[in-house]
């Protein structure tokens, strides 16, 4: 069961909120303090990408962020509702190539490159109902007590 589920309309201004919520839940789940910056950045990248996909495809549906706290792992799933390959290509191209290709709007590829550079355990899938980026981080033995 999801520990926290967040749905927000595909507007850039809400991505910061998603970052803050994800970092807060990750901290509570026992993700190491040094890794929280990575969690914040990775979830921001995934949400920015989903927002971009929804907006460029004219979707009014919200972006979905699922934060799952388990015994030894903390997972984040960011889902978009853009079907097919556009919902999530699986092989991110190197960021520098994307950035320097004058014909490409390289931010989408660069976002995936940042995620795969930051997170060891990441998968990108896409299907008829949309794409999902799943990221997992190990959790320290004893969560912070209040």
């Amino acid at each position: 069961m999801a520990t926290v589920e967040l749905r927000f309309s595909a507007q850039p201004e809400h991505v910061r909120t998603a970052r803050l919520v994800a970092a807060a839940v990750a901290r509570r789940a026992g993700v190491e303090e040094a890794v929280l910056d990575e969690v914040r950045l990775a979830v921001g990248e995934a949400c920015s990408r989903a927002v971009g996909l929804h907006r460029s495809n004219g979707l009014t549906a919200p972006v979905r962020v699922v934060l799952i706290e388990e015994e030894k792992v903390f997972s984040i799933e960011v889902g978009d509702e853009v079907p097919g390959p556009a919902g999530g290509s699986s092989e991110p191209v190197p960021a520098m190539d994307a950035a320097l290709d004058p014909d490409a709007d390289g931010e989408d590829e660069m976002g995936l490159a940042v995620i795969s550079g930051l997170v060891d355990d990441v998968s990108v899938t896409s299907g008829e109902s949309g794409g999902t980026i799943r990221m997992r981080w190990p959790v320290a033995g004893v969560p912070d007590l209040p």
Binding site: R19, R40, A95, A99, L100, G106, M110, G111
Partner: peptide, 16 residues
């Protein structure tokens, strides 16, 4: 305090 790939994209755009 925070920089993501969108920011990187803008800097690359500036460089071009």
């Amino acid at each position: 305090d925070f920089l993501d790939s969108t920011g990187l994209g803008v800097l690359v755009g500036g460089l071009k």
